[in-house]
Amino acid sequence: MTEELRVVVERRPAGAILYTRGYINNVGGEEIANRAYELMDDNVRAILLNLRETKIVNSIGISILIEIIEKMMDKGGRISFCCLTPVIHKTFQIMGLANYATIFDSEDAALKELNLHNQ
């Protein structure tokens, strides 16, 4: 039954990419938050969340994502998202998350805009 979220962190010279796989609920949201806060503590100020392998989110998980965005904004950094399903994209807009974070259609577009390429 449990759709445990897995998060893979990929560090880049100018930031980091978090790849999620699974359900972003309260537990999954906290898992993302833990990884993001570790990066922020390490002075990372650009984080891209690639949700390609996430098909379901709930309002509690999104509320945690908003907290991450707010914390990053306080530090002068930026959280972005890419590769959302249409329904997750719509859900992010309804929840107001899209007002504070940029949402990219593809990872390539995000990497280019955020200067997160490896070289």
Partner: peptide, 17 residues
């Protein structure tokens, strides 16, 4: 409370979807 209030949006999501 709008976007600043991060919880209690479940009904809004149901209605939107």
């Amino acid at each position: 409370l709008g976007t600043a209030y991060k919880r209690g949006r479940g009904i809004q999501l149901m209605e939107a979807h």
